[in-house]
Design a protein around this nucleic acid. Structure first.
Lengths: 349, 349
DNA sequence: CTGAAAGCGCTAACAA
DNA sequence: TTGTTAGCGCTTTCAG
């Protein structure tokens, strides 16, 4: 168990003062070429790595951002968000601290406390369970970035516009002759738990569907909307999309195409279709939303894609951009796209 | 933007010395009831939260563990691992720093460097790309825990025994009359990149299949093994399970049941079956491995389940258990189980 | 029971 | 161009 070399070790070995070593290491200030050499050599020899804690303490920066998601196990969408954030953070030399509240208020509160203790430079979240939990975060001046949802008042926002993707998706369906189209809407949170009111973003998706559909010349009467949560309270439960899919597909006026509010809902819908002997896309066309597990499903699912990479970059950028006084929090808006795969076909019959 | 209160602030407000405040906050040492009250009140009033950086610097502990995975976007298995680790870590008051190397050697090297800088108390990893990248980690005495794979020599291990789950799965198939059974083996890494040699754990799964099958009285000649990677170099590529599934299912002697080396491979196989007009489970029985996305597929996939919760707990426990001198690294072994769902049926015909 | 003081490793202002 | 020094916030002897 060798000890980690400190800057003092490096300085000693190079026969210079710690200050000079620091200057070389940060490559600022004047240092003679000779000393520079010696310090660099000493760094090599000792395998010196800076101690971030010490640096943080001194600079009051932690080089760390906290990320709050609900649960990627319940909804694969969060896997993609998490991945995108990580890549963007890395690029800015930041490390990410994560936790999942998994719809448990205590988890959220405690996790945020932990973030404060770690002096994260910002908190990024996707779906604040209880916005009041962010009060201590605000109190110590940590900026908050909210992705997609709008629950926390004092937060920079990464907004996602469902319309471009929705438009392309509906255009595809209409071109293939579909007229009776359903939207399997989701809402964040779980019905029997707190925090399950439909959020702006969920309404947004639904409204986007209705508005774009009408703009495409579809009759409002031929549009069907099913509402409910995205995921289930327990991993033991049948998928929400299966339960609601059964209802949707056995109704008197069965839609010929369904757009789901998430790939997860679409996955359940595919199960319902299979159970009912409906072939996709021959008997029923299905389009997902998010483009998370779309490519893993059978058939590979056409989906309205979230711009994950751009979301990650925007979130990190907002996290680091100082709150310009009086300016109020910033906001970025990003567009969805449509990724056609194998789950959309011509209208049957 | 209020500033975070420090312990000195608390002490001043309570009219005591920082040392006394510390004693109250850590609830150790003798403090008069009166002073205790006053300090506690001051903590409340200021909303004091300890500064972990400062504490770390002083205690040389970081309360942080680093986790290296490949990519949960490519393989959903890692989502479950990541989730389990997070829960276990939380319980021990640890925070997790994550990164995904995504089969990029530079990412792995740089990420581990970052972990060293953060003074993580341990590094947990699932699939070391280049074991030599861990040398600096060893050099500074950070313990390493390896989950499932065995690539790093000096590491504590969480081993997973595929046999119990495999046994139950094969028993189910045999009871339903299956005799010609294939195993769609995976190997970590990607064929056209470094680090793609089949690993012990992958061999382990395949060998478990062969051994258990023969113990079940199956004729070796009726067993088929297909080998290849788990995932594809790019998210654009068709799933590996689809490509290999096509070959497997169009061969002269088509198996009546397939066990896949991962749910991801099984997902591709379901796509192949659909494409070829084979119904699951009527024409073909399919069993996955991991139990990651199994419940999202259509039909819901029977799967050999990894004991995720136990893996998370064991990994964190090993991460924190000091390396008993001379003892060599510890190891824990955990058993898989079998989760039957809807993708297994009686042998056709 | 309480306080003073040193120091973890690093940085930046200031002096030389 | 280089070194000295003080101090970030916390903990922990050691005196009192």
């Amino acid at each position: 168990m060798k000890q980690k070399a400190t800057m003092a070790d490096v300085a000693r070995l190079a026969g210079v003062s710690p200050a000079t070593a620091a200057r070389v290491i940060h490559n600022n200030g004047y240092v003679s070429d000779e000393n520079k050499e010696r310090v660099l050599a000493a760094v090599q020899e000792t395998g010196y790595r800076p101690n971030i804690q010490a640096r943080s303490l001194r600079n009051s920066r932690s080089y760390t951002v906290g990320v709050v998601l609900s649960s990627a196990v319940q909804n694969p969408f969060f896997t993609n968000i998490s991945h995108a954030l990580r890549i963007a953070a890395n690029r800015s030399g930041l490390s990410l601290l994560n936790f999942n509240h998994n719809y448990d208020a205590r988890m959220e509160r405690d996790g945020l406390q932990r973030f404060i203790e770690h002096n994260v430079e910002a908190v990024i979240l996707c779906h604040a369970l209880a916005p009041e939990h962010l009060k201590p975060v605000h109190a110590v001046g940590i900026p908050v970035v909210e992705i997609e949802r709008t629950r926390v008042s004092e937060a920079a926002r990464v907004k996602i516009d469902p319309r471009p993707g929705m438009q392309a998706a509906l255009k595809d369906l209409v071109a293939k002759g579909h007229r009776r189209i359903a939207f399997l809407a989701g809402m964040a949170g779980i019905t029997n738990r707190p925090g399950s009111t439909p959020l702006d973003s969920d309404h947004d998706r639904r409204n986007a569907f209705l508005e774009v559909a009408q703009a495409c010349g579809l009759d409002a009467a031929s549009l069907i909307v099913s509402e409910g949560p995205y995921d289930t309270p327990s991993v033991e439960d049948p998928l929400e999309g299966l339960t609601r899919g059964r209802a949707l597909l056995t109704a008197a006026e069965r839609p010929t195409a369904v757009i789901a509010g998430s790939d997860l809902l679409a996955a359940g819908l595919l199960q319902a279709a299979l159970e009912l002997g409906l072939r996709v896309p021959e008997d029923l066309s299905v389009i997902g939303y998010d483009d998370s597990i779309a490519r893993f499903l059978a058939p590979a699912l056409s989906s309205i894609r979230q711009p994950f990479e751009a979301i990650g970059e925007a979130a990190i950028e907002l996290a680091l951009s100082p709150i310009t006084a009086g300016q109020g929090p910033q906001s970025r808006s990003l567009a969805t796209t449509y990724v056609p795969r194998q789950s959309v076909g011509p209208v049957p019959g």
